[in-house]
Amino acid sequence: MPENTFLGPSLALSAILFSLGVAGVLLRRNAIVLFMCVELMLNAVNLAFIALAQFHGAGGQIMVLFVMTVAAAEAAVGLAIILAIFRHTQSVDLQNINLLRG
């Protein structure tokens, strides 16, 4: 065991970044910036996995690998959807995307 594994501070940093990501998702109206805040949340979770992988073995790092891969796939598809919506409504403001509102 290395003498300082930074467990507490890493988890705290992960919590701060995650809460900033959640705040961004709740506060912003621009769809692309919203997406970036979702990526921020995923990064915070990656940090938590890596911090605990020092104790629980390589499974944590492999999980981070999969999270990164899925985030890449999600970013590609999500941005393609935003592009398609932009062609339809000429804006990325979330308030204008309300066709399903009852």
Partner: peptide
């Protein structure tokens, strides 16, 4: 921080995948 916590490969893959690819897609869009 990942490299500091002993996950060197994941750290460099974070730069390669997230910064080098995903954020470039965001910037393009």
């Amino acid at each position: 921080i990942f490299i500091l916590l002993g996950a060197e490969l994941i750290g460099i893959l974070q730069v390669l995948v997230y910064v080098g690819a995903i954020l470039v897609v965001f910037l393009f869009v």
